[in-house]
């Protein structure tokens, strides 16, 4: 009984004060652990490093609140990224290559959403299939050879800086992340579509009985998911300066970890964009401090696994705490 009570408390504290405390604690611990951690150079670096994963996490937030899941991010960013590189090489036009990427993302998302809702296939299985198809398609498209030679303008997206005359220049990728965060927050909390996402994820039957076209909501969410994935994909290849057909492995895992750490429930119906961003920051900082402390990469993977496990356990405990008061 006493043990139960302490578990209960842990969950209560977590659900009340949220993950901000954890974020601050990790920042404090990290700043003691490494003197280099709190330098502007390193902090900018963290933001640059998390940009791709954080955008994927924004996208995954919608899907997970809906009660679905997408496990295809890694393969799809490789596909869309390489595709945008090829278009860039062929046309030399940045805008065309960006639009091509967005269109492809929307198309993949539309197919995911359509098949999931029409045939009532679990999203996990559908996107697992998408993973294999996308990976095969990118290898087919590139012949397994990295795409290069996109030119300077393409690199700006992932590597460029803005406000270079200021004391702290801001990377364009971080600016894109901030912009997408604000847009995602507005869509999720201030539009009908956003409210419907919560309702469908919270209780799909009640949503239908309230006159909501739940299948349309799910389809729209997957299209949005595809578009955001496309942006992440372009950023990803631009940062690497090449379209690598084999790259992006494990990105779905990082994105889902950030979302879950951010307090979004895998059961659906609950979650916030702010939580996801803080979750992405936590995951990013933990990775960063491990690099600064020269933790072996094998260990880093194990830590990554423990983080998501811990986050899910806390999520379940906080649910218990709100259930049994």
């Amino acid at each position: 009984m006493r043990k139960l009570l302490s578990e209960k408390k842990l969950g209560e504290i977590y659900s009340k004060f949220g993950i901000f405390i954890i974020l601050i604690a990790i920042i404090i611990i990290s700043s003691f652990a490494s003197p280099y951690f709190l330098t502007t150079g390193n902090l900018t670096n963290i933001l640059k490093q998390i940009a791709v994963v954080a955008i994927l996490a924004l996208s995954a937030t919608y899907i997970i609140i809906l009660g679905h899941i997408n496990v295809s991010y890694g393969a799809v960013i490789a596909l869309i990224g390489s595709f945008s590189c090829q278009v860039m090489v062929a046309t030399g036009n940045l805008l065309v290559s960006l639009l091509a990427a967005l269109a492809m993302g929307a198309f993949i998302g539309a197919i995911n959403g359509f098949i999931i809702t029409t045939f009532e296939i679990p999203a996990f299985i559908m996107t697992l299939a998408t993973t294999a198809i996308a990976r095969g398609a990118v290898l087919l498209m590139t012949g397994g050879i990295p795409v290069t030679g996109m030119g300077e303008s393409f690199l700006l997206i992932g590597q460029g800086m803005i406000f270079t005359n200021l004391k702290i220049p801001i990377p364009i990728s971080v600016l894109i992340l901030i912009g997408l965060t604000i847009i995602s927050w507005i869509i999720l909390s201030k539009t009908c579509f956003g409210r419907y996402v919560y309702a469908v994820g919270g209780n799909e039957k009640a949503a239908i009985a309230s006159g909501i076209k739940t299948k349309t909501v799910i389809r729209k969410a997957f299209i949005l998911d595809g578009v955001l994935t496309a942006i992440a994909g372009v950023l990803f290849v631009s940062r690497m300066n090449s379209g690598q057909p084999g790259a992006g492995v494990g990105y779905e895992f990082y994105a889902i970890t950030a979302v879950v750490v951010g307090g979004t429930s895998l059961a659906g119906g609950v979650g916030t964009i702010m939580g996801t961003i803080v979750g992405a920051l936590i995951v990013g900082i933990i990775n960063n401090i491990q690099i600064l402390l020269h933790v072996h990469t094998y260990w880093q993977q194990i830590v990554q696994g423990l983080i998501i496990l811990f986050a899910v356990i806390i999520d379940i405990l906080s649910k218990k705490a709100s259930g049994k008061r």
Partner: peptide, 29 residues
């Protein structure tokens, strides 16, 4: 509980769920 309400969400969201479009002012709720 199954067809009437989204129990996980608050009163504010539930009470406006059916007629949400009515509360949209310049694109936003």
């Amino acid at each position: 509980k199954t067809y009437g309400l989204v129990l996980k969400r608050n009163v504010h969201e539930n009470i406006s769920l059916v007629n949400l479009k009515k509360f949209v002012k310049r694109f936003f709720i």
